[in-house]
Design a protein around this nucleic acid. Structure first.
Lengths: 236, 236
DNA sequence: CGAATCTTTGAAAGACGTCAACATTGGTGG
DNA sequence: CCACCAATGTTGACGTCTTTCAAAGATTCG
């Protein structure tokens, strides 16, 4: 899917810019960012940054999916989010001057732009509109996190899996389109690491949901057939 | 503990200001905030703000503890954090222009200052040093949240309880002092709602930890006797 | 002092994880 | 293009952790 022609992409022309964190930039700023950034094609399974290392810049996804996870004390991955086109990764630890608390790894071949630290930080301090957008975005994200925390603490594995499927339907669906035929392409293990359960348990639930006609499986791929039913199973 | 004399407190004189979000303010800004704010004594169990309502300003705790929680779909409280002196509450939803995702309720009689929305927002836009401090603080908090999420998803109830006790030891201890005799004063239900478990399960673990000489109970109060042992029980 | 709230314990059921064995798939090199 | 290997997926059996329900005891606060 991603190939060399994408490497020429400039922020000014990027169809995702408006939706992204960089949507608040004016034309001039956008050009400056475009000049400073580079664009790379990553193979499936490559790591953008490792937990415990220091940020050197930010990543902006042009194509493909990236999993962001943290390793638990026993080495098990907990997937915090699945990032996709227009998502910007790796800036929070940069701003707070921490080591990365998480690892970012591509789930498929990806096209991803990289903006060096200093350029990003100048944007934060020099562009009031970008600063505001950033602040709002992060503050909103913290509210979302409270939600995730509560769900993780109070909902059963079955409920959490139903929620995860609905979330993934959005992530893997075309933005704006309400097509019901969304294929989720993740390993069972990754799915289990999103929900926070054992792979075997997840497979059993997959089987249950299939019997209840909530989903369909095509090989590894999962198709959400009945979002309303899933919402009910998740008690939403 | 809290009484009328605290109502006269001004930010310039506040012993907690340096450690708080407002530590980045210059003298002039500090005075302006002090003039704009009010200070109130709250009784135990009073609500500062309710989940689902719109922020009108921010709260800065001068004395006492406040629980911040979210209600799950079945009405159970999930305690996200226990806030104490120098903690600032209620600004994130204000910045992101969301409704409050959580409720803040006093756990004891508290003395708390209130700064109206517009004054706070002016600070954000007009004070670069405050803006930076805020941004850093929030970004750091998100990293902490990834950690909490992972622990909630992967650790057993027993391990999570051990972690919670260590966290509460800090919250209830005097800042800086390394005294080992810290009394945690929370109901069993609140403790359970921090850990994310049933009250009965928590009580049984309390019993276990007591037998293992990790803690001691004095009526409702809990005293951490062996932090290192707890850290081991939490697999940290 | 008494009602209300909070705490504790027991017993039983249920959810979930772990282990082991086996099936399937996808990718790689010959 | 095929064969093979490693990774991934699936199923069953079992044990354990955790929740739930019920009931009794202890505290606290008005």
């Amino acid at each position: 899917m991603p190939n060399k022609k994408y490497l020429d992409v400039r922020c000014e022309d990027c169809q995702f810019r408006r939706n992204s964190l960089f949507g608040a930039l004016c034309t001039e700023e956008s050009t400056r960012v475009s000049d400073a950034k580079s664009c790379t094609v990553y193979k499936k399974g490559q790591v953008l940054f490792h937990e415990g290392t220091r940020p050197l810049g930010v990543f902006c996804i042009y194509g493909g999916k990236v999993k962001v996870y943290k390793l638990g004390s026993d080495g098990k991955e907990q997937i915090i989010r699945i990032a996709r086109e227009s998502d910007v990764l790796g800036y929070k630890a940069m701003i707070s001057e921490d080591e990365y608390p998480v690892t970012a790894e591509t789930l498929e071949d990806c096209t991803i732009c990289f903006l060096p630290k200093s350029d990003f930080l100048h944007l934060v301090t020099d562009s009031p509109s970008f600063n505001k957008r950033l602040l709002q975005s992060i503050c909103h994200e913290l509210g979302v996190m409270s939600n995730k925390l509560t769900n993780l603490a109070q909902k059963s594995v079955r409920e959490r899996f139903a929620m995860a499927l609905l979330m993934l339907k959005d992530t893997y669906g075309i933005d704006g389109e309400e097509s019901e035929e969304v294929e989720i392409n993740l390993t069972r293990e990754d799915l289990a690491n999103i929900v926070g359960t054992a792979t075997e348990t997840l497979i059993r639930l997959l089987h249950d949901f299939k019997e209840e006609d909530l989903i369909e499986t095509r090989g590894r791929k999962i198709v959400v057939k009945n979002p309303r039913g899933l919402a009910k199973a998740a008690r939403l």
